[in-house]
Amino acid sequence: MTLGNYFENIYKGLKSLAAGMRLTGLYFVRRGDSLTQEYPNNRGTLKLAERFRGEVVMPHNESNEHRCTGCTACELACPNGSIKILTKFIINEEGKKKKAIDTFVYHLDTCTMCNLCIISCPSDAIIMANNFEHSVFDRTKLLKVLNKPESKIMAGVE
């Protein structure tokens, strides 16, 4: 190590230290870009990313119709058996017997939000919702039925 190298090392070291301190100093002074969300206070304005997985829901339209055909693809895809579909046979307008869902049982307590059911669904009947405030005092409240009572399958969904 020559003497020139020695002083060069000192200069480079001090320069890199100054660069680091400049950045944190800027962060310290600029208060606007704080990343912290003050959660319970900002509930009204809280914005979650669209891809955030909170729970599985089944959307219904205004006339209480969903898109689930009861094919049980989601039940088969679920790695820990959080979905249980009970089917029934209904008779449609043409007088034919047809399979439809009776109850779509969803165990939120065992769900890991892996998204496999949503991927496997052929008719896009279920989606992931953003709601994440799931805490309840009774475990049985986590057992949910996704299809609303008296709901029917949407016309045109096979």
């Binding site: 944190t24 962060y27 310290f28 208060r31 870009d33 704080s34 990343l35 912290t36 003050e38």
Partner: peptide, 13 residues
């Protein structure tokens, strides 16, 4: 507080 401000957090509040 200093730590929080330098890491773009709020610190104890």
């Amino acid at each position: 507080k200093v730590a929080a401000y330098m890491q773009l957090r709020l610190g104890p509040n």
